[in-house]
Design a protein around this nucleic acid. Structure first.
Length: 304
DNA sequence: ACCATACCTCTCTC
DNA sequence: AGAGAGAGGTATG
């Protein structure tokens, strides 16, 4: 008997395209390394938004396959290339940050993990929402904001919402945002939306200005401290020297490298710059990802 | 300058 | 299954 060929996909499925390159990339690890919160893996495709374009991505031997919604003339291949940070020379990065066995192990296991170039506005809100939270909750929060204040896009029958602009998000009051489950972060999100909308914080002006100036500008936002500002600098503003120090990284650096000494945030930062130089942010991301994977492993081991 | 504490409520765990 | 801890931080005393 011959099996009947039945198309499982709906009508008008987008044509897959392809970007070819020969630099290291670990797409799945990169999209799930805690930098971005809206990528969803469905049927072996990563669905998510890059700006106002809904895309699906899938890595193969020679690069990345993709399909997307209308791009309004934008070069989608370049958009993806840029978003994934494929222009960073990872060989140069590895050479500079590979200072010890621990980092060497992380590079070995997670080769191709990259720092993304996200939209600074979305990144700012995501990390304001990250305070005393966890990844599932941050993701849920970002989806709630998108569904309530963004607009829908459809790709092959699959619908996702854009992340709202500062103007769109400004239509929500603090009380509205609390109803979405933001908790004490609601006030900070509303405030940030207001500041960006009226131009008191101009995120696009922060590319390429001195680190300390960009940091200071971000920290003008209530609810944005040094750590959140470093996340925005590293994951969206292309500042590879930014080195976000959360409680876990702090404790681990203290044990692994600092002989148990408790240094202030600024002192740890200066230590990181001295050790890892201008690619310190990559060292941070590899150590962060490694510590998270080891945490998962320990949980599995305990369960049998 | 440093340290403790409150802040919302969701998620994971036992 | 339901209660209790803890959560990628920041602002405030």
């Amino acid at each position: 008997m011959v099996k009947q060929a039945v198309s499982k996909t709906g009508p008008s499925v987008s044509q897959d395209k392809h970007i070819t390159f020969d630099v290291p990339l670990a797409l799945g690890i990169t999209l799930n390394s805690g930098q971005a919160f809206r990528w969803q893996l469905i049927d072996h495709w990563y669905y998510g938004l890059i700006g106002d374009v809904l895309v699906r991505l899938r890595q193969d031997e020679s690069g990345v396959k993709y399909a997307s919604t209308e791009t309004h003339g934008k070069d989608i291949a370049f958009l993806i290339w840029h978003y994934l940070g494929l222009c960073d020379d990872l060989d140069e990065v590895y050479q500079r940050i590979n200072t010890d066995d621990r980092i060497a192990g992380a590079i070995l296991h997670y080769r191709g993990l990259r720092l993304l170039r996200q939209d600074p506005w979305e990144c700012l809100i995501a990390f304001i929402c990250s305070a005393t939270s966890n990844i599932p909750r941050i993701s849920a929060t970002m989806e709630a904001l998108a569904k309530n204040y963004g607009h829908p896009l459809e790709l092959d029958g699959y619908v996702r919402h854009t992340f709202p602009t500062p103007y769109e998000l400004s239509s929500g009051t603090e009380a509205d945002l609390r109803r979405l489950g933001l908790g004490f972060r609601a006030k900070y999100v509303a405030w940030a939306a207001h500041m960006v909308r009226i131009g008191e914080l101009d995120l696009s002006s922060l590319y390429g200005v001195p680190y300390a100036d960009a940091l200071g500008a971000l920290m003008e936002c209530p609810g944005v401290g040094h750590k959140v500002a470093d996340c925005v600098l590293l994951f969206s503003l292309n500042r590879s020297e930014a080195f976000p120090i959360d409680r876990h990284i702090w404790r681990n650096l203290q044990n692994w490298y600092l002989d148990g000494h408790k240094l202030s945030y600024t002192n740890v930062l200066e230590w990181a710059w001295e050790r890892f130089g201008r690619w310190a942010g990559y060292a941070n991301q590899y150590l962060f990802y490694q510590q998270r994977q080891e945490g998962k492993k320990n949980l599995e081991g305990g369960g049998g």
